[in-house]
Design a protein around this nucleic acid. Sequence first.
DNA 1: CTCCCATATATGGCACGTCCATATATATGC
DNA 2: GCATATATATGGACGTGCCATATATGGGAG
Lengths: 118, 118
Amino acid sequence: MGAEASDLEWKKGSAELLILSLLEARPRHGYEISKLIELRSRGAVRYHVASLYPLLYRLEKRGWVEGRWVEKSGQRRRRYYRLTSLGRKVLASQRRGWQRFVEAVDRITGRIVEVEHA
Amino acid sequence: MGAEASDLEWKKGSAELLILSLLEARPRHGYEISKLIELRSRGAVRYHVASLYPLLYRLEKRGWVEGRWVEKSGQRRRRYYRLTSLGRKVLASQRRGWQRFVEAVDRITGRIVEVEHA
DNA sequence: CTCCCATATATGGCACGTCCATATATATGC
DNA sequence: GCATATATATGGACGTGCCATATATGGGAG
């Protein structure tokens, strides 16, 4: 009942948002996503493969991304994931949610100061 | 090894940071913390009691907060938690960590744009 | 030529945190 | 007298990240 889905799935990892964001520009394979997260976050965020791959399967199962195998001589086969149109909508929604969450945390932790009852 | 504590425990909930922050100003009891989180986040963040109380026990066990029972006629007994000096240090550290994490997520999700290889 | 490392994907099992449901206890409003 | 808000407590279900490990291939060091 009430809204759809929990508004604060953030409590358990923002991994979904990160992956969907990285797939926005173009399709990427798992290992690339992993390294890109590490690189762009300057080492602050790092997902282990045992977390990342199952997550990609979940995203695909939900229809947010779509994977296809690409084989090239001279390298191991890779599975490239591209964002589906549904995935794009989910990403937009998750971006808004993340924004709201960060603001909420800031208000609670006092970075945004408010008067506390009279 | 390496640093102390995991740098990114954020992946599983920022509840610790929120609670420690709220106890910074003054001691509070569980129910008050719960309501305050809900109020200040404008409903965006809401912890269920079954999450909150066990978390408070954990924080106390780690020596970050200290609880004491307060009984007043006309109301049910309450357990007030105050931030210990160790808790204050942890809070400062977690605040920095949260800050770094938000920046990292922003860089990954593209809110902070960067050039991507030549 | 062999060993090791980086690349690249895959998975079983453990640990831990959050939620649901439920329980207890007291003061207030209807 | 009963429902509701306050206030704390807990067993069990469930999801998800991590550790360890496995497979496969190319390139560099020795």
